[in-house]
Design a binder for these strands. Structure first.
Lengths: 350, 350
DNA sequence: AATTTTCTTGTAAAGGATTACATTTGCCAT
DNA sequence: ATGGCAAATGTAATCCTTTACAAGAAAATT
């Protein structure tokens, strides 16, 4: 009574390789060879072993194996925040690649907290992961150093400053922002605003720089009154857009540093009864799944997170095999045009 | 040349407990006792040991420990689809609870594929996880049986049929849908539609039933022409809404079986120039993060995923300790009112 | 048929921690 | 001082695989 389910009271067999060996009338060494597909076992014998394994429902003990071999076939994956819709696709891609190789992924998130980051790394080292992918915006160098000391290869994402010390999947922002700008110019916009992220963040700074140099290459400049800074979240985007809307000649198009802020900008526009894209064009960055769900569907610069994951994974594999990480090509975001961009409305002056 | 980073060519020390013991002038047993906080070690000695550990930068080998103890402090977490925004919050909550207990989570997704599900379970058993939380809509009973045979406790989510055989975190849909209905009735709606999920899915069926009995308890009935079935995704919700909008007296309010379909419904309304909430009220189910990002922000029935995770985790812990899973209380969703619901417009008849 | 050579298979030693049990040490009471 | 007892520490078996090496069996060579 009080039980939510009837317990299947089954004895737990501790089936080890010795049982299998006995049943198949061979030694444990032979069983091991069969399991691992090593050569030098007669067909007839390996058949017998396989049958014994099946009959006994034997499952090898990964701990013993890892202990002996010094490899766990476990990778660690650290992200900033799983609730941030940026990450699921990345995690998905990484985990799929790993699964295809029989590698398991233990995955944790730092919640943007350097102390938690340190802990994550330490826990992974204790777990003897074979390698760690760090997909966070913030890192903590001492933890990285510890991983290196422990002999665990690491790959980082988009950490320009540490690119000389650790393998790194870099993002080349220039193309994407150039495409966005070209698109807006082609539509006829000339008053183009920008919502940047906190300039303490390297990646936010680089996005802004990329947009600035895109402007420059078209003979334009960033104007302070058309530039606002947000917190990379919806709320910050809304506030930033409010600011841009309140200036006396507000821009007809706005590019944001990420989609969440673009969504915030959209909300601010709605609230101010500014119709998007009729009276205001918005371009986001990232191409989160939500981007296409919004109304209007958000035009955005897609950061191919599956590529990032693939590069990171390949890099780690290399490091494990070769002991040296090869250079990886920067990943290039590209513009995805949806419905949040249109020619500017003819206002006051035409 | 060709290298993306300078390799820190550091020797990898294989620091084992014996080194520590030597350095501290004690036996490995004592070191072990200090590490595990067991009683019966003199203060002076344990200080010496701790110092040695720190100096040598010793990290215990989890594999050896797990091998010996038969416990890994690893939990498995299986979800359907990490790209479905339903899951991140669940994963987050589960992982945080685990981390707080020094338990690692290996997590995989089935992509709604029973074969992959089977694989996931098998991989986790091989990894010697201490327990598995299955947070998928579809399960494969043979795999569950295997886990039980291997002595790995399992908890399922919302599998009414299997609730007698395996511990289960159930969702009680009735309250949530009743609240939604009451809300709509209070606003003055009487023509209320419903977008259901595929009736092959138990959870979808139960949601529909819950809504039906909510109607019944107010003397109302479900009308076939105001009911549509979608695929639980955005696209299906859009198609379903299209159908409802095309009937000659379309409903003034629609309740959907999940938020993704509510978003689809919203899109369909936009496309048909039906203003939400002025001419159509929509209520979703789940309360995904995107729900509040939409325009208008979606009223929805919140399924508290953090509670689901907490119950699942607690249940597994119990099972590990006590050998029997305690009954867990069903989780109750509640209505969250935002901006997609309003009194019906006075149309034709008033 | 005897001797090599080549395949198969077996034996036993790691691998690094935990822990039952044995032993030593330290302390107290006498 | 000395015996007794509790507390502290040590010894060695154990967890389950993998794998170097040894040994045995089969095939090939002469």
């Amino acid at each position: 009574m009080g039980l939510g389910y009837t317990l299947v009271n089954q004895r737990v067999y501790h089936m080890d390789i010795l049982q299998v060996a006995k049943r198949a009338n061979v030694s444990t060494a032979t069983v091991s060879r069969v399991i691992n597909g090593l050569p030098g076992v007669r067909e007839k014998t390996s058949d017998r072993v396989r049958r014994a394994i099946a009959e006994l429902n034997y499952v090898p003990n990964t701990n013993a194996r890892s202990l002996r071999m010094g490899r766990t076939r476990l990778f660690g994956l650290i992200v900033s925040d799983i609730n941030n819709p940026f990450f699921p696709e990345l995690i998905d891609a990484f985990e799929s690649l790993a699964a295809a190789q029989g590698i398991e992924v233990i995955f944790t998130h730092t919640n943007y907290d350097p102390i938690r980051f340190h802990n994550c790394v330490r826990r992974m080292i204790e777990r003897n992961v074979d390698a760690i992918a760090v997909m966070t915006s913030e890192v903590e160098e001492e933890a990285l150093q510890q991983a290196t000391t422990a002999g665990v290869p690491i790959v980082l994402m988009n950490q320009r400053e540490l690119a000389g010390k650790y393998p790194n999947v870099l993002v080349d922002y220039s193309v994407g922002f150039r495409e966005a700008l070209v698109h807006l110019l082609a539509l006829g916009h000339s008053n183009i605003g920008f919502i940047a992220g906190p300039q303490t963040l390297d990646s936010a700074r680089r996005r802004k720089d990329a947009f600035k140099s895109a402007l420059k290459s078209h003979g334009l400049r960033m104007r302070a009154e058309w530039t606002a800074i947000g917190d990379m979240k919806v709320e910050g985007g809304r506030a930033a857009m409010d600011k841009l809307l309140s200036c006396n000649s507000s821009p007809t198009a706005v590019v944001t540093s990420n989609d969440l802020m673009a969504i915030g900008a959209l909300q601010a526009a709605h609230a101010a009864h500014v119709s998007v894209p009729k009276n205001l064009s918005i371009i986001g960055f990232d191409d989160l799944p939500v981007a296409s769900m919004m109304h209007p569907a958000l035009s955005t610069i897609r950061l191919p997170r599956n590529l990032v994951a693939a590069q990171a994974f390949a890099c780690l594999q290399q490091a494990i095999l070769g002991g040296e990480g090869a250079a990886v090509e920067p990943v290039q975001p590209h513009l995805v045009i949806r419905n949040s961009t249109a020619p500017p409305a003819n206002r006051k002056r035409r």
